[in-house]
């Protein structure tokens, strides 16, 4: 399913028209992205949380040539699902 299809699903169940729903949905992603980019975490109760992990720089190898290449330190975003969401997937509500 795509974002557009999901928007279709929720439009009508809220008081908002499709255009406003699209705007709100896009701004949710924008907020989460901006928070993560500034190193903040986002906690959505009952759903999960988005956080950033730091990866140290390391030496890796180019698998084709075997040359050692320096992989710089970086921050990577990840999602941790809430226990509620995990339980729902396994049929215990």
């Amino acid at each position: 399913m795509t974002k557009a299809e999901l928007v279709d699903l929720i439009t009508g169940d809220t008081g908002l028209n499709r255009r406003d729903t699209v705007t709100v949905v896009n701004l949710i992603m924008e907020n989460i992205g901006n928070a993560l980019a500034s190193g903040d975490k986002v906690e959505l109760r009952g759903f999960g949380s988005f956080k950033v992990k730091s990866r140290r720089s390391r030496l890796a190898r180019n698998p084709r040539t075997g040359d050692a290449v320096d992989v710089p330190a970086k921050r990577v975003p990840y999602f941790k699902a809430s226990n509620e969401l995990k339980d729902r997937l396994n049929g215990h509500d």
Partner: peptide, 9 residues
């Protein structure tokens, strides 16, 4: 309401 519904869906 929209945010909640989005996450629920």
């Amino acid at each position: 309401e929209t945010v909640d519904l989005f996450l629920d869906k």
